[in-house]
Design a binder for these strands. Structure first.
Lengths: 237, 237
DNA sequence: GGAGAAATTAACCCGTTGGATAAATACTGT
DNA sequence: ACAGTATTTATCCAACGGGTTAATTTCTCC
């Protein structure tokens, strides 16, 4: 009788897909928190509620695991970007939405930033081996190219920038601020991740890029061209 | 006779300062190439032409060594920045020079970028413990604040941006491009570190920031507002 | 010229870590 | 119901890596 009970009360259940997902999620946490070399396979296993052997069984060794996490991360952001639908927006609005999305995505997914940093420290050694990732970016570049072209033709934009440069710049403004917020906060003695600071940053970035494209600084950034104010405090944007 | 010769031909000479410098230099290489966890104390010793024990003797354990390297790196860039002398330049020229300096410095000192990335992955854990670093940045911020104020008063700039935001943005545009060039190159299928690509990037960054500040996109970035060109190739900046 | 301090070397220690092996347990189709 | 396979656990280990101890060599100052 106790025997049947024991048989029912399984020691463990099978769940290969679930296990694989939990492993990848745990690995994402670990790799983003500690980098590639700093990540501990045992910690990943523990966090996934699994035995270490499972990692090797379901994914592969540490490097393969890392690459799988990286590919998953790119996959996720690209798929969200696809939903942006910039084509149907006014060009300046499209750019603004792209900036807001990028900023928001980085804020919501700090592990993504860490993973990219880690991979770049490794000089993209792993990413180069990935066949998946290379193909998923050209559509995105074309999307931006179209927006820029439309903006130029409509007269909204005074200048046709290379879409890749533009995207890199937009990403840069958010990425650097967030990924380096720790050292920057220490250096400048401000908490850059405080609510107000984040709002300011978004306004600053959108103002900067749109002002450059449209040539209308004053309308987009706060105007402070009033005749000489006292030298004391300069109003900030 | 051979004995005297042997005595003269020393097995090693003392050189505490030199040794310390070689250790720090080797450590900088190692930490920037492999990150904190990936760095190997033995490799640092070997690269410095020293025994591992020397690291502990002259600097301290791995963490202290790392912090010393980091402080040295900040020291170096700040001292070079001090020589910029932006106060005596036309505001737009001052900003341009700041952009060019930042870009050039990052290009010449890639280890600096890696070190910052590494430290940010560690959430500035070490930097927070540093007393030196905190104090050396306010003068620099004031320098930029003055330039912006002068630009606003002279009418060159249409807008008074927060100097910290502006500096972060300028640094961001260069930093992200360079520190992430490995993954970006893979993703976009371009060699972002090729000579031409670098020239383009500098022009793009300077154009973007100055256009935003002055409101003169057309003069600063290449004008492409000519009546509709064929849809094929969009001219890039 | 030699004693004591400073600098450097050589050898070792021991916890950690990625990875491997083999046995045990749950599931599946027949 | 059972044979075969997929999944999971329980150990083990050899290499590595940071850090230490103790002995050795050079320098310096009297």
């Amino acid at each position: 009788m106790a025997k049947a009970k024991a048989k029912r009360n399984l020691r463990w259940q099978r769940d290969p897909e679930g296990m694989r997902l939990r492993i990848l999620e745990a690995a994402k946490q670990e790799f983003s928190a500690h980098g590639l070399a700093g990540a501990r396979v045992d910690r990943i296993a523990a966090k996934a509620g699994a035995n270490k052997r499972m990692l090797y069984y379901h994914v592969g060794n540490k490097d393969e695991l890392y690459l799988a996490v990286l590919e998953g991360a790119y996959d996720k952001i690209r798929s969200e970007e696809r939903g942006l639908d910039l084509e149907h927006l006014d060009p300046p609005e499209a750019i603004r939405r792209l900036i807001e999305f990028t900023w928001g995505y980085f804020l919501r997914n700090p592990e993504f930033l860490s993973l990219l940093q880690t991979e770049n420290l490794a000089r993209a050694k792993h990413l180069k081996r990935s066949t998946k990732v290379k193909s998923m970016h050209s559509p995105f570049v074309e999307m931006i190219r179209t927006v820029v072209r439309r903006g130029v033709e409509s007269g909204d934009f005074q200048v046709a920038v290379d879409p890749v440069q533009l995207y890199i710049s937009i990403a840069a403004l958010s990425f650097f601020y967030l990924s380096n917020s720790a050292t920057l906060s220490v250096i400048f003695g401000r908490d850059l991740l405080a609510k107000d600071a984040k709002d300011e940053r978004l306004a600053h970035m959108a103002g900067l890029v749109l002002a450059a494209l449209t040539g209308r600084s004053a309308e987009l950034l706060q105007i402070v061209n009033a005749p000489k104010k006292r030298a004391g405090v300069v109003q900030t944007v």
